[in-house]
């Protein structure tokens, strides 16, 4: 099952963050708990762990995107071998989250 990774909210005052670096490339295997990326919040640069195991199927945001609002999709983790329709996965996520 494909999981959408969002710009995490890390701190009560954080409204947006920037991707500093992806530690994984598209197609790489990812283990839950592994460092997936680092982000810049309003207060600090933080390493963020993967919440799911699988394959980093799609990166939707990079450092070039600048500030991204919290809870905006930034990547998709899929099951190994799973083929996904990126637009469909993001659309379903948005309708589920009511955003």
């Amino acid at each position: 099952m494909a999981h959408v990774i969002v710009m995490p909210r890390l701190g009560q005052t954080m409204e947006a963050g920037e991707i500093v670096e992806w530690m994984k490339n598209e197609g790489d295997a990812v283990q839950k708990g592994e460092i997936l990326m680092s982000i810049q919040t309003d207060k600090a640069t933080l390493e963020v762990e993967a919440d799911y195991s699988g394959v980093l199927a799609k990166i939707l945001a990079t450092p070039e995107n600048g500030e991204i609002p919290c809870f905006e999709p930034i990547a998709i983790i899929a099951a190994p071998g799973e083929s996904i329709d990126v637009e469909q996965v993001v659309k379903e996520f948005r309708s589920k989250e009511g955003a």
Binding site: V6, L10, F71
Partner: peptide, 8 residues
């Protein structure tokens, strides 16, 4: 809870 927090 850490995951739930990150996801708002």
């Amino acid at each position: 809870l850490a995951i739930l927090y990150k996801n708002g």
